[in-house]
Design a binder for these strands. Structure first.
Length: 581
DNA sequence: GCCGTTTTCGGCCCGACTGTTTTCAGTCG
């Protein structure tokens, strides 16, 4: 079905980038790897552009598109085709030539472009089903370059793909990584064990766990690693490197490192790959050479033991791991304009906390005690409101009763402040389910969508904007409503919501609840770029959940947020002055 | 297909490991 131009106008950066990733893959099939790298580079630039590229195009046509790094005349033209007609003829020709389910087949471990091409040409393998049939009937092993073991690995990977979707949430990966770290740290000869990879970068989901060890006894740490009780399969086992599958289904890699290379190795294995590629290119331009062992000039090592030292020798300040995605951090670093990122210790308050008045597990007093212990100076009590019947949402009358109780608790307090607030439900038409007079008496008002998730994009966007235009609303809670791995975000034009938040001076929340992390990093960055204020909330439903704030801080850091962008780094009086102005 | 403070042509990041080979292609990160 051909898209109309109106539909094409909705193509997101993500969708456009996907087309170029696909083109890149086809170039690999066509034995044109350099053109493939070019498409890949353009795809990354499109994906990570802080503004929508269709807006770029509307502003200045193909010339404006060519300001993106890696986008030249030919790719700009393809983007123009995509915007105007919803199609890229080159891509359609290739899709017709190779009618295969690309992303499916690429998700199989051990399959890359070359093998996928062979499987298609020799065995007509187009998708996972074809692949499974071919492997089960022993046809794969007969192909040149394949063998029994490859066939067996393909079958194993197919089983895994059926059982799992591949990535696990950060909050689940961290404790697993800690377990490995402790187990390996106690091996004789081990000096230090580090967790690198996407966990260190704080990505919201994790594909595998990367571990680095400094040891005088590589063999023993590798042997220990591959024979831990939680290990169900060993993929690789060499002199300095091993790779295993944890019983949870997640893979973990261990690499043994010399102390003098630790900084270079940490950088290399922290990634991202794109960040590393960019750094290596800088090294080359300075007549140097960067790998996981160090930074070299000719044969001579010029840096390697510390990350700071490697960055410095490349002419850059230290770049925090959360920023290492090649989304402009290297350019910012070279201009010395990296933000000073927010830290957990900067947070003074938490603006979304549930209690046993609705669906929380603990009383206001218990939540206050836990917040104090965690080191906070104030929290907002934000129980659900009446239209959310399943949580026993509060009506105006109950809210007023709760306000009185909070006043009483504050009078007995030793300086800790409890703010009167609510998580007000945004109704289908964008109105709120609590009257304005009651809202006006609260210290702060958070609003959120909890019902009618499936509205069309325009209607959902209008609904949310109408809600934040209500002068009583101070914060938009979990702005996109997604639950990682369970529920996609509702259809909403987040850029318009950010614009509206700027106009109405509404705070957008980064909800730190592990399955929410909403706003996500790139949207947080859009908001920061536009000068919109954010808050980081635990969304705690029990007294144990304040540590979730760390995940929110990580997410905010990935969104380039400095302390100044996060309103709950302010004292309670400053915060109240801000929301009352 | 993109790009340029040696280049408008000739480059394009790089090393470990595995399996299938008998010296290396393919994949991965």
């Amino acid at each position: 079905m051909a898209r109309t131009s109106e539909m094409a106008a909705q193509i997101s950066n993500y969708e456009a980038a996907a087309s170029f990733y696909e083109l890149a893959f086809y170039m690999d099939l066509e034995d044109d790897p350099f053109r493939g790298r070019a498409y890949e580079r353009a795809a990354r630039a499109i994906e990570s552009s802080p503004q929508s590229i269709i807006a770029l195009y509307k502003k200045g046509g193909v010339d404006e598109l060519q300001t993106l790094p890696g986008v030249g005349k030919a790719i700009a033209k393809k983007l123009q085709d995509l915007f105007k007609t919803g199609r890229i003829p080159t891509l359609e020709k290739l899709q017709a030539k190779y009618p295969i389910k690309l992303s499916e087949l690429l998700s199989v471990e051990g399959l890359g472009p070359r093998r996928i091409k062979t499987l298609y040409e020799k065995l007509s393998v187009k998708n996972l089903e074809d692949l499974e049939t071919a492997a089960k009937t022993g046809k794969v092993r007969q192909l040149t370059g394949f063998g029994e073991k490859t066939e067996e690995k393909i079958l194993q990977s197919l089983e895994f793909l059926k059982a799992e979707k591949g990535r696990i949430p950060l909050a689940i990966a961290i404790p697993l990584a800690d377990q490995f770290q402790h187990a390996l740290a106690s091996v004789e000869g081990v000096e230090e064990v580090y967790v690198a990879g996407s966990i260190r970068r704080g990505r919201e989901t994790i594909g595998d766990i990367d571990l680095l060890a400094i040891t005088s006894n590589p063999r023993q740490v590798i042997d220990t690693f591959t024979s831990l009780p939680q290990v169900v399969a060993v993929h690789q086992k060499g002199e300095v490197k091993a790779s295993i599958r944890h019983k949870s289904g997640i893979d973990a890699d261990l690499r043994v490192i010399q102390k003098g290379s630790m900084g270079a190795a940490l950088m290399y294995f922290t990634g991202s790959k794109e960040h590393n590629v960019a750094l290596r290119t800088i090294a080359l331009s300075k007549g140097m050479h960067l790998n996981e062992y160090g930074l070299f000039k000719k044969e001579k090592k010029t840096a390697g033991e510390q990350e700071e030292e490697v960055y410095k020798t490349l002419g850059l300040p230290y770049i925090p791991p959360e920023l290492r995605e090649n989304r402009g951090e290297i350019e910012a670093a070279s201009k010395n304009s990296l933000p000073h990122l927010v830290e957990l210790t900067d947070l003074k308050g938490d603006l979304q906390v549930q209690t046993s008045w609705t669906d929380g597990a603990n009383s206001i007093t218990e939540m206050v005690q836990a917040a104090k212990t965690f080191g906070l100076e104030y929290i907002a009590i934000t129980d659900h409101t009446k239209s959310l019947a399943m949580t026993g949402g509060l009506n105006e009358e109950k809210l007023r009763t709760q306000m009185k109780e909070i006043d009483k608790l504050n009078q007995q307090s030793d300086g800790f402040r409890i703010l009167k607030s609510a998580e007000v439900n945004i109704l289908k038409d964008g109105s709120l389910d609590i009257d304005d007079q009651t809202l006006g008496d609260l210290d702060a008002v958070g609003a959120a969508v909890h019902t009618n998730f499936n509205l069309p994009r325009e209607e959902m966007t209008r609904r949310i904007i109408r809600a934040i235009e209500n002068p009583n609303v101070d914060i938009l809670f979990h702005p996109t409503g997604r639950l990682i791995g369970q529920r996609p975000p509702y259809q909403v034009d987040i850029e318009s919501v950010i614009e509206a938040a700027k106009r109405t001076d509404t705070i957008l929340e980064i909800d730190a609840y592990p399955e929410r992390l909403d706003l996500k990093d790139e949207h947080a960055r859009m908001a920061v770029d536009r000068g919109v204020n954010l808050c980081i909330d635990s969304d705690a439903h029990s007294k144990e959940q304040f540590p979730y704030l760390q995940y929110g801080v990580t997410q905010a850091r990935r969104g380039w947020a400095a302390k100044e962008s996060i309103v709950n780094t302010r004292s309670v009086d400053e915060f109240l002055r801000y929301v009352k102005h």
